[in-house]
């Protein structure tokens, strides 16, 4: 397994290089650049072409595309992620500031959606055909179908504006610093973010469990006279968990990207919010690093899923 893991890690390098080049090219093809985004049209109308040239020169934007990519890549290889073009803030600082907020939101949402999704999905499978199963199926479909921003706005209206139970947004109020102060702020965004995921995990867990319950080893276990809870949980659920783990593993990077909208709705100061600003401002060093980070988490998640699958399911062998 160790050889497999090392080989997969080494494979990440060409993949990341290719993807970084593709993202950089895509950014280059978008109209405008950081200078045109920094200066509003009214002010721009008063600048001469020479001033624009000088300004672009100071940002290194007059160099050719390949040269700029080469410089950027060289810096990244040396651990220098560069600076945001808009505000000159080191990108490592932006990551250190924003990533914890995004991870906090994503992990809480992932935890709730996984636990709740697995419990409800398994229960639904065990009660197949019952009213509870049908109700959960309908709820699952609704959860998957309705966009999360809609849930977010409805939740804000009810719990923040009408009932006043929870804050309208932000990660923390001024003057409050403890973890307990943070809890009211994360409840709504995490619940809304986990809502859609819960529905997905639930549906997946249900069908996976139903599939497991039809296998021969379940029949064998029953013939041995094992108690039903032991058959379901230790035999059925363990096997049903494998595809669910794959789904959950792939959800982690999606959560980081997927929280962009939720971060906007709840004014959550995370990486998603930053990404939107960077794209709007053609802040290519920042866009590049956030995009690469997302890609890296996807690839790492894929590797972790493979390893976990092998650990959970004895039928899987890594080679």
């Amino acid at each position: 397994m160790l050889t497999y893991v090392i080989r997969r890690i080494l494979l990440l390098i060409p993949m990341l290089l290719t993807i970084s080049f593709l993202v950089y090219t895509a950014l280059e093809l978008t109209p405008g650049d950081a200078v045109s985004a920094l200066i509003n049209p009214e002010l721009a109308s008063r600048l001469t072409e020479a001033q624009f040239y000088e300004l672009r020169e100071s940002y290194g934007l007059n160099k050719s595309f390949i040269t700029r990519y080469g410089i950027w890549l060289g810096n990244v290889m040396q651990g220098n992620f560069g600076h945001s073009l808009a505000g000159g803030v080191p990108i490592s600082t932006i990551f250190l500031d924003r990533l914890p907020a995004t991870l906090e939101l994503s992990l809480v949402a992932l935890f709730f959606s996984t636990v709740l999704g697995c419990i409800l999905g398994t229960y639904s499978a065990l009660k197949r055909g019952s009213i509870t199963d049908s109700s959960l199926t309908v709820i699952g479909m609704v959860g998957v179908s309705i966009p999360e921003f809609f849930f977010g706005l409805v939740a804000l209206l009810i719990f923040a504006l009408n009932l006043g139970w929870l804050p309208v947004g932000g990660r923390l109020l001024p003057g409050y610093e403890t973890i307990w102060d943070r809890i009211p702020h994360i409840v709504m965004p995490a619940m809304v973010l986990s809502l859609m995921m819960t529905a997905g995990v639930m549906r997946y867990a249900r069908s996976s469990m139903l599939d497991a319950l039809t296998r021969d080893f379940i029949t064998t276990a029953r013939s041995k006279g094992l108690p039903e809870w032991r058959i379901n949980l230790l035999h059925g659920f363990r096997v049903a968990l494998t595809p669910v783990v794959v789904l959950i593993g792939f959800r982690l990077p999606v959560l980081i990207g997927g929280s962009v909208i939720i971060e906007q709705v709840f004014q959550w100061p995370g990486l998603g919010n930053e990404f939107i600003g960077a794209v709007r401002g053609s802040d290519y060093p920042l866009v590049m690093m956030i995009a690469l980070f997302s890609v890296f988490t996807v690839l790492m998640a894929s590797l972790i899923i493979d390893v976990l699958t092998a650990l959970i399911d004895p039928r899987v062998r890594l080679s």
């Binding site: 978008t30 405008g32 045109s36 509003n40 049209p41 721009a44």
Partner: peptide
Amino acid sequence: LEGDVGAQLT
């Protein structure tokens, strides 16, 4: 207008 709005306008 999208992209380099300043240049396109001015």
